[in-house]
Every structure is written in structure tokens, then in C-alpha cells.
Simulated assay, not measured.
Amino acid sequence: MRPSAILESALYVTDLAAAERFYREVLGLEQIARAEDRHVFFQCGRGVLLLFNAEATRQQPEPGAKLPVPPHGTAGQGHLCFSATADEIERWKAHLTEGGVAVEADFHWPAKPGQAKGGRSIYFRDPSGNSLEFAEPKIWGL
């Protein structure tokens, strides 16, 4: 057996309100759920991006809790990559720059066997310091 896709991806943030604004207003993601001081969730294509206040998710759920999700959380900078075409990456770079978000890196990956050229990536940070990327799927041969 093998999983068919990743349904959710999680990042842990230090300022939930700032992260909520950034992912909604700068990245334009559709917010689908929110729990005060705990989490905010966004739809992204066919997947879901979960943003958590790590301190709030490290607690064991109460016995009989409605949602008995086991504790989880991490500290430090995480990473997430969004899929984009070459044209979309160029537009994202301009959009981020115009919005005051620094693009830390912009480069082309080496070509995979059988490819004429490699794909492009740009990297930037969210308000909590998480490393975000827009990349062409062909960086993975997809």
C-alpha cells in the first residue's frame, strides 16, 4: 500500500493573527476554519494548510473530548512549498515584492535526467519565519 496524496500540511506559528492575515491577504488562501489562539486552516488547491499555535497543540485532549487529536507541535522554522508554473512564479515574485515581502532566493534547479532544463524556485518567509517556496513541479520530475 502507498498513500495517494498529502491531504494536510502543518506549520507552527508564533503569532496566529499575523499568520492569518499573511496567508489570507498576501497569499490569497481561503480560510476554512479557525479556533481562537489555537489554529487557522486554509484551503489550498485540493489540500489544506493547517497553521497552529504550537503551545496550544501540545496539550493532551481532555478525556471524552469532541476531537481527541493527539498532542503535536514543534518550535523553529518550518518549510512549505507551493506548486506554481514558471509564469506564476514570476507573477508571485512581483506580488510579494510589491507587498514588502523579501524574496530570499530565486534560482533554477539542475535538470533531472530526460529534462531539457530544471525548474525554478523562489523562497520567502511568513511572519513567523517559516520558509515558504513557490516552485515548478518539474524540480521533482513531476
Rank of each mutant, 00 (worst) to 15 (best):
M1G: 15
R2S: 13
R2L: 14
P3S: 12
S4R: 09
S4K: 12
E8Q: 11
S9C: 15
L11A: 05
Y12N: 04
V13F: 03
D15C: 10
D15N: 14
L16E: 08
A17Q: 13
A18H: 07
A18F: 00
E20I: 03
R21I: 12
R21W: 15
R24W: 10
L27H: 10
G28V: 04
E30K: 14
E30P: 06
E30D: 13
Q31S: 02
R34K: 10
R34M: 11
A35S: 10
D37E: 10
R38M: 10
H39P: 01
V40N: 00
F42A: 00
Q43A: 10
C44G: 03
G45A: 00
G45D: 01
R46F: 01
G47K: 10
V48F: 02
L49E: 00
L51R: 01
N53H: 02
N53Y: 03
A54V: 00
E55M: 02
A56I: 03
T57S: 11
R58Q: 13
P61L: 04
P61I: 06
E62R: 11
A65I: 05
A65S: 15
K66W: 14
K66I: 12
V69T: 13
V69Q: 09
P71F: 08
H72K: 15
G73C: 08
G76A: 14
G76S: 12
Q77L: 11
H79M: 15
H79Q: 08
L80G: 05
L80E: 05
C81Q: 14
F82R: 00
F82D: 04
F82P: 07
A84Y: 06
T85W: 11
D87V: 11
D87Q: 11
D87K: 13
E88A: 14
E88S: 11
E88M: 14
E90R: 15
A94H: 15
H95V: 05
H95G: 06
L96I: 01
E104D: 10
E104R: 09
E104L: 14
E104Y: 08
A105W: 09
A105F: 04
D106V: 05
D106N: 07
W109P: 01
P110R: 06
P110F: 09
A111M: 04
K112F: 08
K112R: 11
G114F: 05
G114D: 00
G114L: 02
A116E: 14
A116H: 06
K117H: 11
R120K: 02
S121H: 09
I122A: 03
Y123S: 05
Y123P: 07
F124I: 02
R125Y: 11
R125S: 06
D126L: 07
G129D: 03
N130I: 10
N130G: 02
N130S: 05
N130V: 08
S131T: 14
A135V: 05
P137D: 06
K138M: 14
W140K: 12
G141R: 07
L142I: 10
L142S: 09
